[in-house]
Design a protein around this nucleic acid. Sequence first.
DNA 1: AGCCTTTGACCAGCG
DNA 2: TCGCTGGTCAAAGGC
Length: 245
Amino acid sequence: MGENNFSEREVVTTELTKGKELMLRLQKHFDPMQQGVCRYLAVEILSSYDKAMSLLNGTALSGMMSKSKEIINPAPSSSTAPQLESPQLLADSCTKSCDRPSKSRKRTEYVEARPGEEVPPKDGLNWRKYGQKLILGAKYPREYFQCVCRHCDATKMVQHIEIEPLSFEVTYGGSHSCGPENKNQNEELLAAVGTQVGGAAGKLSECYISEMVTPNNSYKTKYPCDSTYDTILQLFSDQPSYIHL
DNA sequence: AGCCTTTGACCAGCG
DNA sequence: TCGCTGGTCAAAGGC
């Protein structure tokens, strides 16, 4: 699997580089007055590409797992970023509120369904649904899951985000005593890379495509970054074990 | 038979 | 103290 991994790694790196170049080209065409959202997303995507390439090149692996939340929910360093009512920001605020020191530490992530699917991507663990509740003001019910291991107190909540139909807020609680976390560190890493690249690129694609819709709602074209992003995610989803750190 | 999902009930926290 | 809300429990039914 070694040589195969190496070639796939090259493909991913090439695709990321290509995507970054496309983003830079795209950024030049933004109208700063009307495309603030796209500008902000472009910055996010470029940052994600940089981090993803650093990960693949092994230059930023140290501490990656502890920083995954920071990557997914970037610090508000970009004061020029528009105040979006986006799920990412919602998740960020929730993460902060859930980060208070407590016995039941919770971790909130923002994930997107894969193209053509309407369910959150698998996270490599086995969960059993134990409840569902319609939360006040929410269009979709919140689902509650427990780890299938009886002695394990790990739980997760999945909330379908109303304003982003393909997005989900996933809150993990408790801890795995059945030991699957170490086993799935590679998958978590891949999920972190895939989430940051795919999430930002997906949102930008949606935003940009909506700008290109003709009056009769037919698409004029498909922006090239879409295919790059699809290629990367396909590599991640088809062979999630291609990276061994 | 065993596991999973669904769903109403129950309970605890909070204002 | 009371009512509201979110989280969990547990029975029932399906696969």
